[in-house]
Structures are given as C-alpha cells and as structure tokens.
Design a protein around this nucleic acid. Structure first.
Length: 290
DNA sequence: TGAAGTCAAGGCGTG
DNA sequence: CACGCCTTGACTTCA
C-alpha cells in the first residue's frame, strides 16, 4: 500500500487573476483537499505504527500573503483543524511543522522578520486549532558576515515573538552555517529544545566528533519531552545536501552506536516519505536480528 | 495527456 | 552578476 501525498497548490499569478469570490472559493477548495489529505496520512501512519508526522507548510495556500488577505482561513478552517487534531490525538501521532527557508528570525531586514512572524503565527495557530502540543522546527538563519551579532539578533528577535510561537519553536543545526554547538548554546540560553539533524552534522561540523556526552547534553534541552532527531541520506556523493529517496541505514548506525542508552524519536527526511519509513524500519529490524 | 517551463519569499555558494 | 539550491515539488501552459 502506498499513499499518494500530493498537496495542492496554486501560483500567485493564477490567484491574482481571480475575483474576490473566486479567490476564496479556490483557496477554500485547495485548503480542504489538503486537510483531508492530512487526515488520510494520519490514518495511514496509525495503521503502520508511525508515530510522527510533519505537516507541509503549504497545507494552506498563501496563508499570509497580501493578495489573499480577504480569505479568513482561521474562521473557515477551525473545525477542520479541530477534527484533524482529534485524529492525531486519538492515534497518538506527534505533529510538527518545519518553517520554510523564508522564515528568518535573525534577518537584518525588518520586513523579512515581520513576514517570518506572520508565517510562524500561521503555523502556531493551526497547531492551536488542532489542540495538539505540536512543535515548529526552525533554523537559526543567516550569518550576514558576522556570526556573533547574528546569533545575538536571533536571541533578541526570538523574544519579540508571540508567546504562543515561542513555546512551540525548536531549533535545528543546519548544513552550512550554524552547527550543533552553535545551536546547542542558543537552545540552552533560550530554553528551547534542539533537534539534532545528524545528516547536517556530518556535512557541517567544525568541532570534535559527537560523543554520547554531547548527545546527552543536546537531549537535555528537551526537559521532560522525548527528544527528536532528524535523519536523512544524501542524494549522491556530489550533492551531499539534497535528500535521497530512502534512508541508507549506514547513515544511522554510527549514531545508534553512541546513543543506545537513550530513548528518542526519529523524523525521517526522505523523498519516498512513508515508503522510506517502512523500509528503514525493516532494515533496522533485519540488522538487529543479525 | 504528456512534456517543458514556471513559480512569493532570503541568503549563500558557484560559475 | 546571474543562477541554482534549499522545501517529502506542484502548477500551468503548450504541444
């Protein structure tokens, strides 16, 4: 059994050709198709004992764009999200979002920061409507030629965010700029959990190799919550950053070896999505048996 | 109905 | 300086 998980979308150009009435109709229709798809995925995950799900940020089309301001999705979709949230809770599936690359909390441009606040509020409100204790993953952002100042700006801008957003954010190490030590320091100071992405770690690590002690410190940022890591495999040797279809079990074993004493969730970032998750689990089972 | 070109946004690396 | 990349690509147009 495979899932066809194609989330509907539309281009701005198409949207702007429509009358106000047509716009709302179109946006509603796409939003509804996508939320129904989420319900279907949750059901699939439950049946296949997959305990996590990351909802794509394009769940709703143009949720924060000026050209769709007349669309009051919060009012219209509240019951939908309540229903979806109830499913997630009944199935025991943890929900999360990953803010897109345009969400930059530490931007030097105030407009970019304000747009980021809008996007984060959208994601936060969806989680609140769902009534789940979901998380929103973010990266630290740009460096702008001065990492120390950019980290400072991240921290001060973080504190300008609405409380409802702040309490959902979790920070992830990235593959180019902010490595795990940078993010750990920031996470500790802001008291937010850190998601360790072990693929990004391998691509971008300026420090010593990760030890069990380091992982313990990273996991301690989660307090009473079960920690989560991100796992993916590179597309190919040349293009290390892009995600492959499936997970190569080798990319996890080294980490498993230093974390056997811990209990944590694994979010897979693989293009084959649910198929990759099922295969990963089979590979792991086979390996442990032999 | 298929393939090819296009798509809101930022920051960074590459040619 | 223009372009591609990142995101679990998808939409739109044109044969």
């Amino acid at each position: 059994m495979t899932l066809k998980t194609i989330f509907r979308d539309l281009t701005l150009k198409t949207l702007e050709k429509l009358s106000t009435y047509e716009k709302v109709e179109k946006l509603n229709s796409i939003g509804l198709i996508n939320t129904c798809l989420v319900d279907k995925i949750l059901k699939f995950n439950y049946e296949n004992k997959i305990g996590l799900y990351r909802i794509p940020t394009n769940l709703l089309p143009f949720p924060t764009h000026p050209s769709a301001m007349e669309w009051n999705w919060r009012e219209i979709f509240k019951p939908c999200f309540e229903h979806t949230g109830k499913l997630a809770k009944d199935f025991g599936i943890k929900i999360s979002f990953h803010a897109d690359e345009y969400t930059i909390i530490n931007s030097t441009n105030e407009t970019v920061f304000q747009n980021s606040v809008q996007t984060l509020s959208y994601l936060s409100d969806v989680l609140d409507f769902m009534g789940v204790k979901g998380r929103i993953v973010i990266h630290i952002g740009g460096v702008y030629g001065d990492k120390n100042n950019s980290i400072k700006r991240f921290k001060s801008n973080f504190n300008k965010l609405p409380k409802s957003v702040r309490e959902k954010l979790i920070a992830e190490n990235d593959d180019k700029q902010y490595d795990w030590k940078d993010v750990l320091e920031i996470s500790k100071e802001l008291c937010i959990p850190m998601v360790l992405d072990i693929h990004h770690y391998k691509v971008n690590n300026l420090h010593d190799p990760l030890t069990t002690k380091d992982v313990k410190e990273i996991f301690s940022t989660w307090k009473d919550e079960k920690p989560k890591i991100h796992l993916s495999s590179p597309q190919n040797k040349k293009d290390l950053r892009a995600h492959a279809e499936y997970i190569n079990i080798e990319d996890f074993l080294w980490f498993l070896n230093i974390t056997k004493i811990f209990d944590y969730d694994i979010m897979l970032e693989a293009k084959a999505k649910e198929l990759a998750a099922l295969k990963f689990r089979e590979d792991l089972k086979y390996l442990i048996k032999t």
